[in-house]
Simulated scan of single mutants.
Amino acid sequence: MQNKDAEVARRWLADQGVSQVRGGWVSDEEPDVVLTANQVAHSWAADVFAEDVEAADQVRLAFGLLDLLDEYWVTYEIRIADDSAEGPLPADVLWDGYRQRLEAERGLGAVAYSLWVDWFEDHTTSDTAFAEVLGSDIDRVVADRSEPLIRRARRVLECSGPVRWGVKEPTYRTALRVPALHCALFRGLLTSFHDLYGDLEPAAALALLDQLDLPANTRHRAELRHVLTAGHRNHYRSAGAWEAAVRSCS
């Protein structure tokens, strides 16, 4: 599906007078100027949602553009369109687009980044977003353990720090049953402490941390255990706590 979406997006860009060349992209208006993927995203991604087609087709086209460019700005325009007066976007198509790309062997960095900063940090959307990309599926991940599902779970857990603890804790506890997810769970706990909008309950997070089977040289495990044992919830709400943990554990 992703290849099909990308080809549709490539044809759409061609209709806008934009084509790919060695080293970047060019437009018919300035054929001698090579554009970066980021420049293409900033100049044309918003136009996808002005197309006179069904909203579902707009979303698929936007994801196809994301497949071509792997630029965060495309996901930003998706989020803006969902929150616009014409929104929300069709939820089934929107979240299926995210799930497909989170499962793909070729990871798109912009996908996880957009979940983190646009959907998970905003508590008006984080509960739904987390449920759609992992929370509602975690039992299937545990039962199936296919590579695509494990990839998706790993990528979501690693950027889940801003999601409210009460929302993500049941998923974290279920994910404990899959050893292949333990390193991603650790990253989730670590960012839950360090992220500006990170959220955790120290005692519950400590209990999870102590059940993770991690490599002996896992960086920051001791420091995280130190701050959680002391009851700290967040790096930014406990000035000096992390630095003290680093000194204590060095």
Rank of each mutant, 00 (worst) to 15 (best):
E147G: 01
T191R: 12
A55T: 11
R219V: 12
E71Q: 13
D92G: 05
Y236A: 14
D199T: 09
S136R: 12
S19C: 11
H220Q: 14
L181M: 06
L200W: 07
E201N: 14
K168E: 05
L209M: 00
L149R: 15
S19Y: 14
D83P: 04
W44R: 07
A56N: 10
L181V: 02
L196S: 12
F130I: 05
Y72D: 11
V18R: 04
A203I: 01
N3R: 14
L176Y: 07
D32T: 10
S27C: 10
A41P: 09
V40N: 04
V40Q: 03
T128W: 09
A244D: 10
A216F: 10
G107V: 14
G161A: 07
V133T: 03
R173Y: 05
M1S: 15
D144E: 14
L206Q: 11
G64Q: 03
A110F: 05
A241V: 04
V117H: 14
R154P: 06
A62E: 01
L200R: 01
A131E: 14
Y72P: 06
D144A: 11
A245M: 05
R247K: 15
L69T: 01
V141C: 05
R60T: 02
A81Y: 06
D195T: 04
L209S: 03
V117Q: 12
G107L: 13
A205I: 07
E77Q: 15
G24K: 10
A230R: 09
V246K: 13
A239W: 11
L212E: 03
L224M: 01
P88V: 01
G97Y: 03
N217V: 11
R140S: 13
C159D: 14
V53G: 00
E243Y: 09
G166T: 10
W12L: 07
D15Q: 15
A46P: 05
E30I: 11
T171I: 05
E86G: 12
P170L: 00
H182V: 09
E243C: 00
E105C: 04
W165D: 02
G240H: 08
D92I: 05
R177A: 13
L206F: 10
V117R: 15
T128K: 13
G240V: 05
R155L: 07
V133W: 03
A9E: 01
A180W: 09
W165M: 04
D213S: 15
L66W: 06
L35P: 05
E103M: 13
I138K: 07
G23M: 01
E169A: 12
F130M: 09
A41G: 10
L102H: 09
S126D: 15
L149G: 02
L209Y: 04
D82L: 05
A241W: 06
R225N: 03
A131M: 10
D5M: 14
D139R: 12
E77G: 00
R60D: 10
V59P: 02
W25C: 03
L208H: 09
Q16A: 13
F49T: 01
A41Y: 08
T36W: 06
A129D: 06
